Computed example of a mutant assay.
Amino acid sequence: MTLLILGLLIFLGAHSVRIVAEPWRAAQIARIGPTSWKGLYALASAVGLALIVWGYGLAHGHPAALWTPPIWARHLADLLTALAFVLIAAAYIPSNHFKAVVGHPMLLGVQFWAVAHLLANGTLAAFVLFGAFLAWAVTDFASSRRRDRLAGTQYPAGTFTRDAVAVMVGLATWALFAFLLHGWLIGVRPFG
């Protein structure tokens, strides 16, 4: 569990600098340049992610059960993760209604993803992992929306064509992950 927590601190810590230390972040970017900042950010993210995967794998091998998820939780998790993948796709597809309305669909997608996995898993390691991501995504979403309001940020109006692209890309990616990659990479088959 120590490696999992350390990985979460590094990964989510790197992703939280803008939330808790925006002036410091701006000063560092000005001092070392945006390319060096992005390199350090990517390095910290990669190290944190590797520790999360390693730590969760170790903890998953010796699960400490907190609760037994009900059968319906798996079905709801499937629906929530599909929605999460659509929102995450919408973050990268310009001029869609998801981004126009929500502003930060990836952060909302991470929230749906985390809730889905909290519902479907009842172990301590899952609670720590997905609970940490949920807390971070809720905090970052609120912080990002506040920054948008203060800056007067307006996102371009969406089109239904771009919405359809976001939905198709999101659902196709979700299906690929749910039916093939999740079992291969994570060792758990959501549909089998």
Rank of each mutant, 00 (worst) to 15 (best):
S95I: 13
A46F: 14
A44L: 15
A84N: 03
A89V: 03
N121V: 03
N121R: 00
A64I: 15
A65G: 11
A64Y: 13
P105T: 02
A135S: 06
L150H: 12
H60R: 11
A84W: 06
A77M: 09
V47E: 10
A132N: 03
D148A: 15
L87R: 01
P105A: 02
R146G: 13
I29L: 12
V53R: 02
G57E: 04
G55A: 01
A125K: 02
Q28G: 11
V102L: 14
V138M: 10
T123I: 00
L108G: 13
F127K: 01
Q111G: 13
N96D: 09
V128S: 00
A42G: 12
L87E: 03
A100I: 07
H117N: 07
I32G: 12
I71R: 14
H75F: 14
T81S: 10
A135E: 03
H104D: 09
D148R: 10
V86E: 01
L150A: 15
W72E: 04
L134P: 02
A73V: 07
W72D: 04
W136E: 10
G61C: 03
A65C: 06
Q28T: 13
T139D: 04
A114F: 05
I93V: 12
W54E: 04
A120I: 00
P94D: 05
I93R: 06
L87H: 01
G152S: 08
A77I: 05
M106F: 09
S143V: 03
T153I: 10
G39I: 11
T139N: 03
G131W: 02
P34E: 14
A50Y: 12
H117C: 00
L51G: 08
Y56N: 02
I71K: 09
W67M: 10
